[in-house]
Design a protein around this nucleic acid. Structure first.
Lengths: 191, 191
DNA sequence: TAATACATATACCGGTCGGTGTACTTCGTG
DNA sequence: CACGAAGTACACCGACCGGTATATGTATTA
């Protein structure tokens, strides 16, 4: 029994949670509707298909993810270099949990081989936003090629996530953070 | 149909291909049996369950992967540093293809949230073998901490794979290779 | 030659998949 | 109050899921 007019957002929240926990393909529309406290019929009155619901849920997840990360990073450091390194600590804390499930958007891309699936551009956009976030910081470091440094830091972050997905633990994040420090220092020195 | 005594290996090969193409959860035992030119009944005479078949197929895939990569790397360079960097070129060539599907073992880990699934240790072992391969090379560089450098290079490689899974292209591999060069050079200088 | 192991074809099991049809109730608003 | 939109309950669809039963054929080997 969901209050009037909240069925849609309940369904989205339910989809976000279940997709994060089990993956896009492993969760069914029945489970999403049940967890939202509504029915499958209502789900299909708000969303054209499961694919459309998945895309919208991932999009919402992306927005909250960036808000949460921006706030957490800002709370840990003021300077751009400190914020970039704080990202590794943040992800490292998640990645150390035994049931770590990696990045929802990478997993979604792996689950959806069809490049035409509506959720694929959502994942792509999420990663672009992350890259923008990083580039904004590297641009204030006074290095020669801020874009490339941002891409390299992003590769390190993605590597931490993928590595910890197979073998959860704090090690990858620590190693990657140290690598990022070296990259930043080297680029600063060569500027 | 299938010659005597080859049903089992045909089923394994079929499972390897289909899992790589569609993911563990998205492929059914019927499809695996059909592609192998045999039947589901025969499949269950050779494997206790789908999970067991999946684990064995991934294990076989891991073996051939390492053989193929070792040979390809050795063909491109003699020295350990050249071999390490050649790995980025190799993966970069795969990752540039539009339909790039990432790492089968990482995808399997994402597809199988249950840590007790028999395929999970197979993925873990695959990554350990990769780390051993890298450590063997970093140990001959004369650096202070070869183990850590190997882990850092592995994080870079995993990052290339994950990044290209969402947005295929040659860029991540190039960036990661350049980052690896800096890490190696820095560690060598500090030794 | 007879026995046995391997592979075949085909049908079936209960359950779940994404998606729909239909009829009923509840609510906010004109 | 009356109307229409929103939500509910529930049965249903064809297709597929992992896994099994049964019965037949065939090649190797003792």
């Amino acid at each position: 029994m969901v209050p009037r007019g909240t069925a849609r957002s309940s369904l989205l929240a339910s989809a976000v949670d279940l997709i994060a926990a089990h993956g896009v393909n492993a969760v069914g529309v029945d489970a999403i509707a049940d967890r939202a406290g509504t029915t499958k019929r209502t789900l299909y009155q708000h969303f054209a298909s499961k694919d459309a619901l998945v895309a919208e849920a991932l999009s919402a997840n992306s927005t909250t993810w960036h808000e949460r990360v921006s706030a957490a990073v800002a709370a840990r450091a003021e300077d751009p270099e400190g914020q970039l390194l704080a990202l590794f600590d943040l992800i490292g804390e998640d990645a150390a949990r035994p049931a770590y499930r990696g990045c929802v958007f990478v997993n979604a891309a792996a689950d959806l081989p069809d490049p035409a699936h509506p959720a694929r551009p959502v994942a792509s956009r999420h990663k672009q936003r992350l890259l923008d976030f990083l580039t904004e910081r590297t641009s204030r470091l006074g290095v020669r090629d801020p874009q490339r440094l941002a891409r390299q830091i992003k590769v390190l972050l993605e590597g931490v996530v993928a590595t910890a997905l197979v073998d959860p633990g704090p090690q990858p994040a620590q190693d990657a953070r140290a690598a990022a420090e070296i990259l930043i220092m080297t680029e600063k020195g060569a500027s």
